[in-house]
């Protein structure tokens, strides 16, 4: 089968974000960017399915400015076979991303689409579910285990109370949670090889999707800081403070 993996270029998760002085956005100038961690897990899962012989081809797609080709190359170095870059000036919202991915799904006809459950910048957690509804492919979100069996895939999902397992009929959409797998590091030979793997560039116009969002950001602020309180000497003082000062016991 063919697997399509959608990946996003985001701020590196180790970087502390700062809000711009004019409160228009967070400051991303000269900040290290990386593959969104949940997307990395999605690539790893697809590559493992290929190594097991379940999948023949892994296609990776990313949407955004030209720089996100770096993240496509990262995914290719992890073992994906070819890339598709949909070039846009700015980052479209989840609704537009889902519509773009819908067009790619129509063209590529994958049996399985794997996405991260959310991007660590916008924290929306929407795209996979939206793509599922648009393509009428069933969804298994927040996956901690994926087992392909014939024309079905069993997905174990991380839900609030524990785990839920559902069976989807292929073609299907899976979004990854953290415990699905631990992504590998790309080896140097694979990084070199990735540079020669095919990468197609498309535009929203060529796919017939109009961008633009009806949700606008008015302001971005730093969260209210919590200030450090007091140090207590021992448990007796702690319990006393909790009873008599904070009144929570």
């Amino acid at each position: 089968m063919k697997i399509l993996v959608a990946v996003k270029r985001v701020i590196d998760y180790n970087v502390k974000v700062r809000v711009k002085a004019d409160q228009s956005d967070v400051d991303l100038s000269n900040v290290k960017m990386a593959l969104n961690p949940f997307c990395e897990i999605a690539v790893e899962e697809a590559v493992r399915l290929k190594e097991k012989g379940t999948a023949e081809e892994v296609v990776v797609v990313s949407i955004g400015p030209k720089a996100c080709q770096e993240q496509i190359r990262t995914a290719l170095a992890l073992g994906a076979d070819r890339g598709i870059h949909i070039e846009t000036d700015t980052m479209p919202d989840s609704l537009a991303v889902a519509k773009l991915l819908h067009k790619v799904v129509d063209e590529e006809q994958p049996q399985l689409v794997i996405l991260g459950k959310q991007a660590i910048d916008s924290d929306n957690n929407q795209t996979g579910q939206m793509l599922s509804a648009l393509t009428d492919m069933p969804q298994g979100t927040f996956a901690s285990e994926v087992q392909v069996d014939g024309d079905k895939v069993n997905v174990t999902r991380e839900v609030d109370g524990g785990l839920q397992t559902i069976e989807l009929t292929l073609p299907a959409i899976v979004t990854t949670d953290l415990r699905l797998n631990e992504p590998r590091y790309a080896s140097l030979p694979n990084i070199m090889k990735a540079k020669r793997k095919p990468l197609d560039v498309k535009t929203p116009e060529s796919l017939g999707v109009e961008l633009g969002s009806k949700v606008s950001v008015l302001k971005v602020e730093a969260p209210a800081e919590r200030s450090a309180g007091v140090k207590v000497a021992d448990i007796a003082e702690l319990v006393d403070k909790l009873k008599n000062e904070a009144k929570v016991l």
Binding site: I11, V17, V26, I120, D123, V217, L218, K219, V220, E221
Partner: peptide, 15 residues
């Protein structure tokens, strides 16, 4: 909250 709560966005929906 965005960026894991490291920034708070005020957004307006015209939908």
């Amino acid at each position: 909250p965005i960026y894991a709560g490291n920034a708070i966005a005020t957004v307006k929906s015209d939908e």
